[in-house]
Design a protein around this nucleic acid. Structure first.
Length: 327
DNA sequence: TCATGCTCGCGTCAAGGATG
DNA sequence: CATCCTTGACGCGAGCATGA
């Protein structure tokens, strides 16, 4: 399922909530009861008697598995639901106040929805079947659907050969060594000394400032290593995510030895590069979270659909039993 | 084989929320 | 209020399927 359809479903639910509040008919109560039954299954308590009040004041006893109302499967943020009901309730009250508060409420309704982490955590607080997204932990295996576990592999001393025949070695200290491959073997080793090369805490430093022996300055993310360096006027370094991560590689930046940038311009450029790199990582993380969120919601829908089916069958069986007894 | 359409992932920008 | 984080939107390229 693509994300678009999920959003459509959420929008559809909001619309349903509004109409429900406005015109509740007896048939809709039955429908609501059925919806309520769906979410009440996991509570595990026995059959109860629920009183449903009809619009005309009449109360109906509903026997069986109907439980206290619980949030729906695909849940729009709680604020939205509440606000929609409030709008519907206040419709027949003072209209002048409405015109003022309406715009406010509508603005709030249209406001940005909470992050996927927040939504998933809200879902998980309602239903233990939905896993919580931890703050910084790897969340790959947290979904209901079994995802393959990721094994952390540590490379001893990675050595890469560039397309131009240049060797690049990442030392234990985090320094990058460039070696030109001459005809008579490895020549002219250049060491890129990292300003933060010790970096014992992985992931603490997002970016490392590296300086080549010939005065070039490049920015190296702490969790990435250089895998390719092209020769020519522009020397482009390609970085690949360190072996412990599964993130895809990407070209990060290029440094031009022929264009030395000075002072404020360097600072501005550096800030921009840092920002772009952080945002790149953030976008990647956001997409991953989005995918996980969609997967979890899909799983939850599947589970609840199954439960719904079971309950419908159970209700049918009970009805049959009741009819046969009364005959 | 080639053109076309679709899907997916990526990088970037911009807007708005969160935080200190 | 400044800064950082999060995410929707957009454009782009790669990979794949399909039909001419």
């Amino acid at each position: 399922m693509r994300m678009e359809s999920v959003e459509v479903q959420q929008g559809a639910e909001a619309a349903v909530t509004e109409t429900e509040t406005q015109h509740i008919t007896q048939a809709q109560i039955a429908t609501l009861a059925q919806m309520t039954m769906t979410s009440g299954l996991t509570s595990g308590t026995g059959p109860t008697v629920t009183l449903v009040q009809l619009p005309n004041g009449q109360t109906v006893q509903v026997h069986g598995v109907i439980q206290v109302a619980q949030p729906s499967v695909i849940q729009s943020p709680q604020i939205q639901t509440v606000q929609i009901s409030t709008i519907a309730e206040s419709e027949d009250s003072q209209e002048s106040v409405d015109s003022v508060t309406d715009s406010q409420k509508r603005r709030e309704i249209l406001s940005r929805r909470p992050s996927y982490r927040k939504i998933l955590n809200d879902l998980s607080s309602d239903a233990p079947a939905v896993p919580r997204i931890e703050e910084e932990k790897a969340e790959e295996d947290s979904c209901v659907a079994a995802t393959p576990s990721i094994t952390t592999v540590t490379m001893p001393t990675p050595i890469y050969q560039t397309s131009s025949g240049q060797y690049i070695a990442i030392t234990q200290g985090g320094a990058i060594q460039l070696a030109n491959n001459g005809t008579d073997g490895v020549q002219g080793i250049q060491t890129l000394t990292m300003s933060n090369a010790s970096a014992a805490q992985q992931g603490a430093t997002i970016l490392q400032y590296a300086q080549t022996s010939d005065g070039q300055q490049i920015l190296v993310p702490s969790n990435q290593v250089v895998v390719q360096a092209a020769s020519g006027d522009m020397q482009a370094y390609q970085f690949r995510t360190a072996p412990t991560s599964t993130i895809a590689p990407g070209v990060v930046m290029a440094s031009s030895p022929t264009l030395p940038i000075q002072g404020a311009t360097v600072e501005v450029t550096r800030k921009r590069v840092v920002r772009l790199m952080k945002n790149r990582e953030a976008a990647r993380e956001c997409r991953r979270k989005k995918k996980e969120y969609v997967k979890c919601v899909e799983n939850r829908v599947a589970i609840l659909e199954n439960q719904n089916k079971t309950l419908i069958e159970e209700l049918k069986a009970l009805k049959d039993l009741y009819c046969h007894k009364s005959e």
